[in-house]
Design a protein around this nucleic acid. Structure first.
Length: 271
DNA sequence: ATGGTTGTCATACAA
């Protein structure tokens, strides 16, 4: 049975609810995980998504910053949000799909928004970078103790790191740029290893092919310069990895009217 | 080496 999961850093869900609707209509994933909703829970535009068939919505938001949400065609059996680094930041929400989800019944989905980490790649000089590294250490510990990568589970989100050489437009020129420094890349790979997670996008499109999911707003012409990064990820547990079908990066979405700087990534499974 | 843009909230700050 086909099951499609999508992840998208939307950079304000209220401003871009229309774009989310367009994406849902065009690509019809079973589940969409959003990051950077920037929206308190009582102001989330539930109605617009319910109309499109996404009647089950788990939200974990706050005013102005961060915020994650899961929109689903299928009911959830459970949902939870984890706290990382003892902060109130809304950076994680996890759901388990109920028995109504057919072949995907019982699958757990973890939706993450990892801290961006500021501009200076030095944890001493830059508290934000220190926070990012601590967050990754805590994610790794959680993968070791809670074993979220055991069973049938998926981890998606804006992890704010492009770990492989061809996850950025220029490996050499990005080595000192936060999102591609060896320190944070190693930590992300360690999280992945600790949990036994499989990088779905790279299973399907191995290096050295370039893969990007984000292009800066600051570029004069994002498509022409194409200085992208792969900051958004879909990881599968070993048990689900065999079900991997296809992958779509909706690059067009970067050119839509008033776009997010991230584009949706969809992964389909045969469950 | 520098500055380039966007969103939120209210004038900086985070990304």
């Amino acid at each position: 049975m086909p099951f499609t999961i999508a992840t998208w850093n939307i950079n304000s869900v209220r401003l871009r609810a229309g774009l989310v609707g367009d994406m849902l209509k065009q690509h019809a994933p079973d589940v969409l995980c959003l990051q950077e909703t920037k929206c308190p829970d009582d102001r989330f535009p539930l109605g617009e998504f319910r109309k499109l068939g996404y009647g089950h919505i788990a939200i974990h938001g706050q005013k102005g910053y961060h915020g994650v949400a899961v929109l689903s065609r299928h009911p959830f059996a459970t949902q939870e949000s984890r706290v990382f680094c003892d902060r109130v930041d809304c950076r994680h929400i996890g759901v388990t799909l109920g028995p109504e989800a057919g072949g995907a019944a019982g699958v757990t989905i973890h939706n993450f928004y990892v801290p961006a980490g500021g501009d200076i790649p030095d944890p001493v000089a830059n508290e934000k970078f220190a926070h990012k590294l601590a967050f990754l250490d805590e994610m790794r510990a959680w993968c070791g103790t809670a074993r979220p990568g055991s069973g049938r589970s998926i981890l998606v989100g804006d992890l704010n790191i492009a770990p492989l050489e061809n996850d950025v437009w220029s490996h050499k020129q990005m080595l000192d740029v936060v999102s591609h420094t060896p320190l944070e890349c190693d930590k992300l790979v360690a999280v992945q290893g600790e949990g036994g997670w499989v990088d779905a996008m790279r299973q399907l499109v191995p290096e050295p092919e370039k893969l990007f999911t984000w292009w800066s707003y600051r570029a004069q012409d994002w498509a022409l310069s194409n200085r992208g990064r792969r900051l958004d990820h879909v990881w599968l547990s070993q048990e689900l990895a065999g079900a991997l079908g296809g992958m779509t990066i909706v690059r067009d979405a970067r050119g839509w009217e008033r776009p997010s700087d991230h584009v949706p990534v969809l992964v389909s499974l045969d469950v």
